[in-house]
């Protein structure tokens, strides 16, 4: 198992990007490399367990996380301010395989599942691959990261459930561009539909309530085609054929 680093990072910024989502930028010396699809365990003051949050973007001394305020822990997190610090365990989990076959990759994100796919898009573009992106949201107010993807030169196809922005419907209602492989991250029903309908090799990122986040408490095990698998350490990214839908 790969080595885990425990490191205290300073909050550079922690700002809302929608009515219930925040963008948290952390920095510190000695931050280990974090690959697309990997996550960190973030300390939340006053809470016993850390919060596993996927990494949106990372560089040598900086990571960016995008999180939704869903419970008490993420609410506390959203009230933290620059220059405060947070202890982080990183890097955790098995990320996306940027080496999947072919030259054209399709990335499909639902809600905040759009966040980890962003760093993957950067990696794939740097490897000279063509990247197409489809993003799905409940409603226009939930839209995130469009400008970030555009800044990479990608124009994502956007789908909203209520039709308030882009195509009305779910991600599989969008025209599916030609692709050699696909990557998806988002709600389970969305990923199920994507994996069933799309041809070619595919990877998806699973979510589960976690304990340690590092593979030794067995709190997040799911049954897969290859037997029991820990979402935190054997995943969170799995091949589409691994998942028993």
């Amino acid at each position: 198992m790969p080595s885990i680093t425990k490191i205290r990072l300073e909050i550079i910024s922690n700002l809302p990007v929608t009515h219930n989502c925040f963008r948290l930028e952390l920095a510190g010396e000695g931050l280990p490399a974090v690959a697309p699809g990997q996550f960190v365990q973030l300390e939340v003051p006053g809470k016993f367990l850390r919060r596993p949050i996927s990494v949106h973007d990372a560089s040598s001394e900086r990571i960016v996380l995008i999180y939704k305020t869903v419970g008490e822990g993420t609410k506390i997190l959203s009230q933290m301010t620059p220059r405060q610090s947070l202890e982080v365990l990183a890097p955790l989990g098995r990320g996306f395989d940027p080496g999947m076959s072919g030259k054209r990759a399709l990335l499909i994100g639902g809600g905040l599942g759009s966040a980890p796919l962003y760093s993957l898009a950067k990696t794939l573009l740097a490897a000279g691959k063509q990247v197409e992106v489809i993003l799905g949201f409940n409603t226009a107010a939930d839209l995130v990261l469009l400008d970030e993807y555009r800044a990479l030169g990608i124009e994502p196809a956007v789908v909203t459930l209520d039709g308030s922005y882009g195509i009305k419907g779910v991600v599989t209602d969008a025209p599916i561009p030609e692709h050699d492989c696909f990557y998806t991250c988002g709600p389970l029903p969305m990923m199920r539909a994507v994996c069933r309908q799309l041809e070619g090799p595919g990877e998806l990122s699973m979510e589960e309530r976690m304990g340690c986040g590092a593979g030794f408490c067995y709190g997040c095990t799911i049954q897969t085609a290859g037997g029991p698998a820990r979402v935190c350490a054997d995943g969170p990214v799995f091949k589409k054929e691994d998942i028993l839908w």
Binding site: K47, F48, L49, G73, E208, R209, Y218, T221, Q223, P228
Partner: peptide
Amino acid sequence: FGNPTPRIAEC
């Protein structure tokens, strides 16, 4: 295999 998830609840 153990129990189904969720297997962890914080308090």
